[in-house]
């Protein structure tokens, strides 16, 4: 029995890898929704990401596999963990009641639609037109090298232009996160603390109400004036 399994594994390594990776992905996905503790959910998500990375490697997409781990497992899930930790790990009641009404049935419907889409795409043979411009897979040069070459030749300008995006991101984050500083032409700089959220809510709601009243009444008057 065991020898036949090993033989099968040797004969069809792809299949065995796929089954193992798929099991990891599914187990992780199940863990995300089933865990009571949000930290466990986030860690299960890491497991799913790793499983998907294995599937990418099996498809000869080594670069995507690396990106999957670096970006999703490394950055996105860590961000999730930060948020969970900042909100407080012990708040389990988040899961006990639904925030949105009809969340579960809608989720099931969306899941069924997504599954149907995948099945439809797997069945149909839509022509994808040209072969990839980077050339056929199986050449002596591997995938990662190809991407590196494309980034530094065909896509050199877009690659450099992403730097501007990062500059804007830093500038924007610093500006938006900073306290309001009213600048004076003289030497002193007066820092105004942002008002208490409750107060400002109150103030703004009142003033907008005033304005909406203004609008209604004044548009009435305007008809007379014109």
């Amino acid at each position: 029995m065991e020898t036949s399994l090993i033989l099968a594994a040797i004969a069809k390594p792809d299949l065995i890898t796929f089954i193992a990776a798929a099991a990891i992905v599914l187990a992780g996905a199940f863990g995300v929704v089933a865990s009571k503790n949000p930290v466990h959910s986030a860690l299960s998500l890491v497991m799913t990401m790793f499983g998907i990375a294995i599937l990418f490697i099996e498809e000869n997409a080594q670069f995507l596999a690396a990106v999957q781990i670096i970006v999703y497992a490394g950055a996105v899930v860590v961000l999730f963990l930060f948020v969970i930790m900042l909100l407080g790990v012990d708040r389990r009641e988040i899961f006990s009641r639904e925030k949105l009404r009809g969340q579960l049935p809608m989720g099931i419907v969306a899941g069924v639609i997504a599954l149907g889409e995948v099945l439809l795409l797997a069945k149909t043979t839509w022509a994808t037109g040209a072969k990839a411009s980077t050339g056929p897979v199986g050449n002596s040069v591997d995938n990662v090298t190809r991407i590196a070459r494309a980034v530094f030749s065909t896509y050199l300008l877009p690659f450099e232009a992403t730097a501007v995006l990062l500059v804007i991101a830093v500038l924007a984050a610093v500006y938006l996160a900073r306290r309001v500083v009213v600048e004076h032409n003289e030497e002193e700089e007066i820092a105004v603390a942002i008002p208490e959220p409750d107060d400002s809510d109150f103030g703004v709601s009142i003033s907008t109400a005033d304005y909406s009243e203004d609008f209604e009444n004044e548009s009435d008057e305007e008809v007379i004036d014109l």
Binding site: S140, V141, T145, R149, F152, S153, T154, L156
Partner: peptide, 8 residues
Amino acid sequence: TGPKIVFP
């Protein structure tokens, strides 16, 4: 190892 990179 591959063909030389031709920078644009």
